[in-house]
Amino acid sequence: MLEIKNLHVSVEGKEILKGIDLKVGNGEVHSIMGPNGSGKSTLAQVLAGHEAYEVTEGSVTLDGKDLLDMAADERAREGVFMAFQYPVEIPGVSTMEFLKAAYNALREHRGEGEVDAMEFLNLVKEKLEFVKMDKSLLSRSVNQGFSGGEKKRHEIFQMAVLEPSVAILDETDSGLDIDALRIVSEGINLLRNPERSMVVITHYQRLLEHIVPDTVHVLYKGRIIKTGGPELALHLEERGYGELIGEAA
């Protein structure tokens, strides 16, 4: 279970998150919605361990373990995965080499030896199916020259390979056309299971037509101003954020 308590976060002295409380149980999918600038991506980056964000108060634990004490790589080895809103291109690092390094880092953490090359290739090919990507991807540099849709599918593919216990999807729907959105959503749905928690961050309700969340939270100016079921997302789609913001103000 991912548990966030009274989380306050600043960037360059400016407070962005002003006391977030969130509990995501095993197998649950929570969606965080909100207008631009509400702090959604900050929350994702903080959970992943980006050092530019300063946590001034509060705690984040995964199954009781303090995540804030850990560097980004340690968090990932503990089972945290963030699908980036803007995955970076890394020229010269092949996708296969990258995935293998990540997979082996996780294995080492669990006290297992390095994966057999053939076994890993088979695993990776199987997971490519999740997001309908071709194996030619593996010899390409990480994200280099990928279209927007390919980058997002690549994120979900990595999630399929690494099998995290908590996945944070940061606007995975942004920049996707209808077909790519469907492929990505199907991939994500295939990865839902009773052990895995997911936090789906999105600006629009359309992603939630494909990935139906258990709970929807509305984030505004660094605070969760409303929590409800999937119907809250539909409500927002029809009425916009204005009404809620008015209530909160």
Partner: peptide
Amino acid sequence: FYLMSRGIGEHEARRLLVKAF
């Protein structure tokens, strides 16, 4: 950050990036 966010330790991540260079 991207490499480390996938569990790759800092030294190994730097090695990958130096090699890429």
